[in-house]
Design a protein around this nucleic acid. Structure first.
Length: 811
DNA sequence: CCTTCCCGCCACAGC
DNA sequence: GCTGTGGCGGGAAGG
């Protein structure tokens, strides 16, 4: 193989710089104007989020999505939900909870629709929930910069999809994502580009990406490591390290690429994007570094060199800015964490690799890996090829990859029609894979999560086996929803009644604008789970905390778990709730958007959630202390939960969840996924409870132990999507997912079922069956057909970027 | 003041 | 000309 160079050459295009220089003056002016304008508009966008979720599966109209945000009202969505309100509620909860949480909360409010804030303020004014702490009111108003950070955004993004999807059928629509997350597309590109560089996502078509999750991460990393070595980054690092700068390290091969193609350089288009390349290189640096710590300074220098640019100061600054962007994403992925290195002159910011160290083992997808790389390598369909490769190392991979991609992409039209793409590969039209338990919701999409193996998490108890995480292998599928006792979120103050044990509530503060209902289960029970859980670790500190990042760590499931202390970040985010005893499932609703908060506005309460049964939820597994919930049920509020009623079957059940096709959209997420978010939980007691009820007032839900849960959909919901999670082991079996312990105690339990009450359109999951029984869950009605379609719908399509991706068929 | 990094202008590229 | 992409750097928040 030749070397393809990834050339960074483009990173800084001289041309551009020049231009900028020239234009600066004018540009700025324009900028100003634009800014204003945009700002103004933004709020609407945000508003739409909820809507988006609703429509996710079925996009109302493609146009809508794209276009500028329609006001919610237009769509029928409630005018903006009050973002603040939820927050307020949270605060209350938080206060009640621990200080840590509070802090955390304060710092980050995930999913808060930032942009709307303003609007909201004006409109809503302070929320109704005055309950809140006083203290914050003011503060909140301003969305702090942190709340808008790329890292946070990335976490939200990641939370939408399972770490280890069973198949590569999960598609990602940038429009939807940007809308749902309430950010501009530009930001999504930043995230996606980095994820793409690691093969966590792949580009399918314009505006469409496929979610691969971390399945390929290990191989990707291995590949990058190899490339890094080839490039001799380690040498560079060393040199740099010492001297601080390495300039000389020219070790790297100059371009080779066999190419001499210098042409490459010229050829390169923007596509070669630097962000992607930089991201890969940055990761390589970690992988080849002995210390696994890379300072921005060094990284920037190395990257600049490669890029051939004369390192001008400005370039350096630009590079650094980009590195921060990349680092934020990588941090969110749990691959690196920020640290400081001391040097002679003080300390320098640096990042330390905390991701999987041992990814070699998993090489399954070697091809994939290859692919990974370097997108750049790929030739452009247009026939232009580009790329450049500068470093031999890169070259290695590329070819194969490139070819692959081409192949794939070529055939299909750029826009992938639903079906058309990737011939071999998956039919995107179907979102769900047969086997997979997971479904993604299309847009709303989220997928279910799955387990991922990450292990380290939180739970202190892992020993018990409470933890549920699925083994990697299984992961995708089965997520145990666990059956153990389920408990419903206490709307009512008295949770105890329901279960013997203290319930735990988990409250996620802002998952997204949409309100969320979380269900979290305690430890699943049992043994079976235990096995699965490989990952759980105790966290040193409190049992309760877990690191966020940690969870995601495993690659391919196999990776080692790390114990490492979490990153700072993680710590912050650690949630306490998890440790709760979790026996049961708990549900909580966040009010975020919703109605709760709003006085009038949103009242969607048409149908409050009600509990169908209470049963004793409590029975859970005996041992449950501190277990971390394995999964959470995430329901976008946007969907109109408020109006929904739903029933949950008793937790114990095992059966599985059954969701009627039309049900509401929900996603089952592994706890790890959520880990990053602040979660409030009550530990059994009333601590938190108190407010909850208030917050939730509109909706109520209950979980009965025995019965199935039914959800009544609000009118709005047409089932958006159903995430399939498997709750029980049995299901797993069905799916074949994994080993499940025979003795899984669930047998008797009734399955969870969601029922729709109201009008829901049942959707049929077409493929539901395929997988096996469980599939049903998975399917999201919408997802299947609808979702798929959506892409097509996407507005006009001009695809700009060629689909390079073909993704590895390999799977 | 320095670090971090959000924001969004605007160039490009495919149609 | 239009739209999707995404490079890039100003400048502001945070520390």
């Amino acid at each position: 193989m030749e070397v393809e160079c990834l050339a960074l050459r483009d990173l800084t295009s001289p041309k551009k710089s020049k231009v900028d220089m020239e234009e600066v003056g004018g540009r700025n002016d324009q900028k100003e104007n634009r800014c204003v304008e945009r700002r103004r508009t933004t709020p609407h966008k945000m508003d739409t989020t909820a809507t988006m979720l609703l429509y996710g599966s079925k996009p109302p109209t493609p146009e809508h999505l794209h276009s500028t945000p329609v006001k919610p009202s237009e769509r029928g969505a409630p005018p903006h939900a009050d973002p603040w309100t939820p927050t307020a509620n949270l605060r209350m909860l938080i206060s009640a909870a621990s200080p840590d949480i509070r802090d955390r909360e304060m710092k980050k409010v995930l999913f808060r629709p930032i942009e709307n804030e303003r609007a909201v303020e004006e409109v809503d004014g302070p929320c109704q929930f005055d309950v809140v702490d006083e203290e914050e009111e003011e503060g909140e108003r301003k969305p702090s910069r942190k709340q808008k950070s790329l890292g946070l955004l990335c976490q939200k993004f990641l939370a939408l999809y399972p770490d280890y999807p069973t198949s590569d059928t999960i598609s990602i629509s940038l429009d939807e994502v940007s809308t749902s997350l309430g950010v501009e597309r530009r930001r999504i590109y930043d995230i996606v580009n980095v994820l793409e560089s690691l093969m966590i996502v792949g580009r399918v078509a314009k505006n469409q990406y496929v979610w691969y999750g971390r399945r390929r991460l290990g191989s990707t990393l291995a590949q990058l490591q190899g490339m890094g070595r080839q490039q001799r980054y380690h040498l560079h690092m060393e040199q740099a390290g010492e001297g601080g700068h390495r300039e000389g390290a020219t070790t790297h091969t100059p371009e080779e690429g066999g190419e001499g193609d210098s042409s490459c350089a010229a050829a390169s288009t923007r596509k070669d994007k630097s962000l992607r390349i930089m991201s890969q290189k940055f990761v390589m640096l970690f992988l080849v570094s002995r210390t696994q710590t890379v300072t921005l300074d060094v990284a920037a220098k190395i990257l600049i060199e490669e890029s051939q640019d004369p390192a001008s100061h400005s370039k350096y600054k630009t590079k650094v800015r980009r590195l921060y962007d990349i680092a934020n994403v990588l941090t969110s992925l749990g691959l690196i964490k920020k640290v400081h290195v001391r040097e002679e002159r003080g300390r320098k910011p640096a990042f330390k690799w905390i991701g999987p160290a041992d990814f070699h083992s998993s090489r399954e997808d070697s091809e994939a890996v290859a692919a990974i790389a370097l997108p750049e390598a790929i030739a452009l369909p247009g026939g232009r090829k580009q790329k450049l490769a500068r470093h031999a190392s890169f070259s290695v991979v590329p070819t194969s990859v490139a070819s692959q991609r081409r192949v794939n992409s070529a055939p299909s039209s750029p826009r992938r029609e639903v079906t058309g793409l990737l011939p071999q590969s998956v039919d995107y039209s179907r979102r769900c894979v047969s086997n997979s338990a997971v479904c993604r919701l299309q847009f709303g999409t989220t997928v279910t999560g799955v387990s991922h193996p990450s292990g380290r998490l939180q739970s202190p108890t892992h020993s018990d086996g409470n933890s549920l995480l699925c083994s990697p292998g299984l992961a995708p599928l089965a997520v145990p929803v666990h059956p153990e006792g389920s408990y419903v979120g206490p709307l009512s103050p008295q949770p105890p009644a329901f279960s013997p044990r203290p319930h735990h509530m988990a409250y996620l503060p802002s998952l997204s604008q949409a309100s969320v209902v979380m269900l979290y289960g305690g430890p699943a029970s049992q043994d079976g789970l235990d096995r699965l859980t490989t990952e759980v670790q105790r966290s040193p500190g409190s049992g309760s905390r877990e690191s966020i990042l940690g969870k995601r760590k495993k690659d391919e499931g196999v990776e080692e778990k790390r114990e490492s202390p979490e990153t700072e970040l993680s710590e912050k985010r650690s949630v306490e709730g998890r440790s709760m005893e979790g026996n049961s499932l708990q549900m909580t609703t966040s009010l975020r958007t919703s109605s709760l908060g709003h006085p009038g506005g949103l009242a969607r309460e048409e149908a409050p959630l009600r509990v169908l049964r209470d049963g004793e939820v409590g029975r859970q597994s005996p041992h449950n202390n501190l277990v971390q919930p394995s999964h959470y049920l995430y329901v976008p509020n946007s969907a109109g939960l408020n109006s929904l009623n739903f029933l949950l079957s008793a937790g114990q059940t095992t059966g599985g969840l059954t969701l009627p096709a039309g049900t509401l959209p929900y996603v089952l997420m592994s706890s790890s996924t959520l880990s990053p978010y602040p979660l409030m939980a009550n530990r059994g007691d009333a601590n938190l409870n108190f407010n909850m009820s208030a917050m939730m007032s509109p909706a109520c839900f209950v979980v009965g132990s025995a019965g199935p849960y039914a959800v009544a959909g609000a009118p709005e919901f047409n089932g958006v999507a159903v995430a399939p999670a498997l709750s029980c082991p049995e299901q797993h079996r069905l799916f074949g997912s994994g080993p499940i312990p025979p003795h899984f105690p669930l047998e008797s339990r009734p399955p969870l079922t969601f029922i729709q009450t109201e009008k829901q359109t049942p959707q049929t999951p077409k493929e539901a069956t395929a997988g096996g029984g469980s599939k049903a869950f998975f399917q999201t009605p919408g997802t299947l057909g609808t979702a798929t379609t959506k892409p097509v719908a996407r507005r006009r399509g001009s695809a700009q970027r060629r689909l390079d991706i073909g993704q590895p068929l390999t799977n």
